[in-house]
Amino acid sequence: MNHPKRVVGFVGPIYDALQGASYPLMRMVTGLFLLPHGAQKLFGLFGGDISKTAGFFAKVGIEPALPLAYVTGTVEFFGGLFLVLGLFTRIAAAGVAIMMAVAILSVHLANGYFWTSGGYEYPLMWALLALAIFIHGGGRFSLDRVIGYEF
């Protein structure tokens, strides 16, 4: 690959050595950041509670609130776990992207762009990361690669 001339040339070998780790890092961090949200909902960790999520869903008109709170927690926890492992990567990423699209359309869009106002900035970032992971698949350092199948 023909790289543009690097302004700080001595870092080139470092960039080249770490380039292959950039995608697995993105995939794994995306999963790791989703996991605690699912753990809050499903297991009551980190001050969470499925009934709080269901109450919020009902308040904003997402029904049936309790089953959809469980679906959301499952996508966040198990989808996040699968992204970390690179197992069923495309399925997990699709689930996350769809969940975030629903969150944007049903909750955040009306609040404008900025996350500080409850807007769609943050869930859009997660949706786009999930979409990129869906397109790319598990990649080199994934269990999908180890088992030899991508779904």
Rank of each mutant, 00 (worst) to 15 (best):
N2W: 07
H3Y: 13
V7Q: 07
V7H: 11
G9N: 12
G9I: 00
G9M: 06
F10R: 07
G12A: 14
P13T: 09
I14L: 15
Y15M: 08
D16R: 12
A17L: 13
A17S: 13
A17E: 06
L18D: 00
Q19T: 13
Q19M: 13
S22C: 03
S22E: 09
S22W: 05
P24E: 12
L25G: 11
L25Q: 07
L25D: 01
M26D: 00
R27M: 09
R27Q: 07
T30I: 02
G31A: 06
L32N: 01
F33R: 01
F33P: 00
L34R: 03
L42A: 08
L42Y: 09
S51F: 10
K52Q: 14
K52T: 06
T53Y: 04
G55W: 11
F56W: 15
F57A: 03
K59V: 01
V60N: 06
G61N: 08
G61D: 12
I62C: 08
E63I: 05
P64Q: 10
A65G: 05
P67M: 04
L68Q: 00
L68M: 10
Y70T: 04
T72I: 03
T72F: 08
T74W: 14
V75G: 03
E76D: 11
F78N: 09
V84T: 09
L85K: 05
F88V: 09
T89P: 07
T89G: 05
R90P: 03
A94G: 12
A94F: 15
V96H: 07
V96I: 15
A97Q: 02
M99Q: 14
M99C: 04
I104D: 03
I104H: 06
S106I: 00
H108P: 04
L109D: 00
L109I: 04
A110Y: 03
A110W: 07
G112N: 10
Y113V: 15
F114H: 12
W115Y: 14
W115T: 15
S117E: 14
G118D: 07
G118S: 08
G118H: 08
G118P: 05
E121F: 11
L124N: 04
W126E: 00
A130G: 10
L131W: 10
A132L: 13
F134Y: 15
H136A: 15
G137E: 09
G139A: 07
R140M: 10
R140E: 14
L143G: 08
I147H: 11
G148R: 05
Y149S: 10
Y149N: 10
